[in-house]
């Protein structure tokens, strides 16, 4: 990878990336992306959410999963930080607690790629059988 010495060098890298992106069939429809939201308030940051977020960005890219990784505030589950909300295309959001690197790996491999649920879900939204 070429290093940049000033921000105008960023333009060259952008052009390289753009030409590569055209090769990949990339849909502009955001509903087809996996959305990952990392809880990044004081509680999350103090528990290492920064590393978790960085890991998600790097790992999802390495595994070629089309995903958008963003930050969100505190969801009120400070005891279980870092918390991560994952929205698979067309599915209900699922929130995972205590997401360190190992847990993140498990979530990517099992939930995001195969769609199977893993341990450590915080039941935020759930429906009873009556509903």
């Amino acid at each position: 990878m070429s290093k940049i010495k000033s921000l105008s060098d960023l333009k060259k890298i952008k052009e390289e990336v753009q030409s590569k992106m055209k090769l990949r069939e990339n849909s502009d429809n955001p509903e087809q992306f996996v959305q990952v939201k990392v809880g990044m308030a004081t509680c999350g940051i103090a528990s290492g959410a920064k590393d978790t977020m960085k890991f998600f960005i790097e790992e999802l890219e390495l595994q070629a999963v089309d995903a958008v990784v963003t930050q969100t505030g505190c969801m009120g589950y400070c005891y279980a930080e870092p918390t991560v909300e994952v929205i698979l295309p067309g599915k209900e959001p699922v929130v995972f607690g205590y997401v360190n690197k190992n847990k993140a790996e498990e979530i990517i491999d099992t939930y995001i790629k195969k769609g199977k649920l893993v341990d450590g879900i915080i039941p935020i939204s759930f429906k009873t059988i009556d509903e």
Binding site: M1, S2, K3, I4, K5, L7, S8, D9, L10, K11, I13, K14, E16, V17, Q18, M21, I57, E61, V68, V69
Partner: peptide, 27 residues
Amino acid sequence: LSSNEIRENLEGVSLQQKEIREAITDY
């Protein structure tokens, strides 16, 4: 460092792209 300058140079390409991420953090 100004985010506006970065965005002007990127012209809408996502910051999440590996090359761009590495270029910015290394810079």
